[in-house]
């Protein structure tokens, strides 16, 4: 074999090996959960803050007062990369996630990796949930296990080449899943709580922050809004550069859905408010304080 060919071959092998390592799904140490306790009632609060039901209930399913939500999946989420279908995450042992261990579920929710080691698409906001406290996620899982089972099978995503190669998401995660918080300063415990809710559980940035061509969040324009990836309309800028509401206006909006002009929320925000309005008022106040601390973007 001529030397040039040998070198090329060696470099190719090295490149493949590097790519393999870079895209490898990151494991999760089950031991990290030792001594972390779960609380079902607290888990319900996490469930509301994290908005799980908004995406995972069946399409058109309406919330009924007091009735537990059935997380049978099936809602469709269009994007420039294809259409994603929310899976069944009810505790059904076959069609849901009832057979998964706590560690497997924490890995899925916080790291975006399935029990068989595949990357999830970031339509699932694991980048945000990865900032959460493991204790909160364990409580969430304990609550999810109390919900009704659904035997509706999950449907495959409708994603074409090259985005159907899940391994590539390993690289995407390295590029676009930032470590830590986006907003550095959280001067008061209230703003810190608000940051935890907004950046981790409620994953506000997933819709309110514009994305680059590869679907990564443009954190320089954090919460500055942009075109709606699902189609018509725009998602508003909720930084102080785009939203001039007072903190009490924001709290009232997240409680009743009324804007300061007494119009109401529409679209996806209705479900968000449905959830956030059930949290303690102090949490909505904290989100308002956080939004005031975000860097203004015009």
């Amino acid at each position: 074999m001529p030397p040039i060919l040998r070198w090329t071959l060696a470099l190719a092998v090295l490149g493949i090996a590097a790519g393999w390592l870079l895209t490898r799904p990151q494991g999760f140490e089950a031991a990290a959960l030792d001594g972390v306790s779960a609380d079902v009632a607290h888990g319900e609060q996490v469930f509301l803050a994290a908005g799980c039901a908004s995406c995972h209930v069946a399409p058109e399913a309406e919330a009924e007062d007091g009735a537990p939500r059935v997380l049978s999946g099936g809602q469709r989420f269009a994007s420039p990369f294809g259409t994603f279908l929310a899976p069944n995450i009810s505790p059904h042992p076959v069609h849901g996630v009832g057979g998964w261990s706590d560690a497997e579920l924490v890995t899925a929710i916080m790291h975006g990796v399935s029990p068989d080691g595949a990357h999830y698409y970031p339509a699932f906001p694991y980048a945000a949930y990865g900032r959460a406290e493991p204790e909160d996620i364990l409580s969430l899982i304990a609550y999810l296990r109390t919900l009704p089972e659904s035997d509706v099978p999950s449907q495959p995503h409708e994603v074409g080449f090259p985005f159907n190669i899940r391994r590539g998401l390993g690289l995407w995660k390295r590029l676009f899943v930032p470590e830590g918080w986006v907003v550095d300063a959280a001067r008061t415990p209230e703003a810190a709580r608000g940051r935890y809710l907004a950046e981790a559980l409620a994953h506000c940035g997933e819709c309110h922050t514009p994305r680059n061509v590869l679907g990564g969040l443009d954190t320089d324009r954090w919460l500055a809004g942009g075109p709606n990836p699902a189609g018509e309309g725009r998602i508003p800028n909720i930084t102080p550069g785009g939203l001039d509401w007072s903190e009490s206006d924001i709290v009232a909006y997240l409680t009743t859905g009324f804007t300061p002009e007494y119009d109401t929320a529409g679209g996806e925000m209705v479900a968000v408010i449905e959830n956030l309005s059930q949290l303690p008022e102090a949490d909505r106040q904290a989100i308002a304080a956080y939004l005031k601390a975000v860097s203004p973007v015009e």
């Binding site: 409680t255 859905g257 009324f258 109401t264 929320a265 529409g266 925000m269 209705v270």
Partner: peptide, 11 residues
């Protein structure tokens, strides 16, 4: 509750 009713339709 009125807000929820308005939002329910606007959604």
């Amino acid at each position: 509750e009125v807000g929820r009713a308005c939002g329910g339709c606007h959604e």
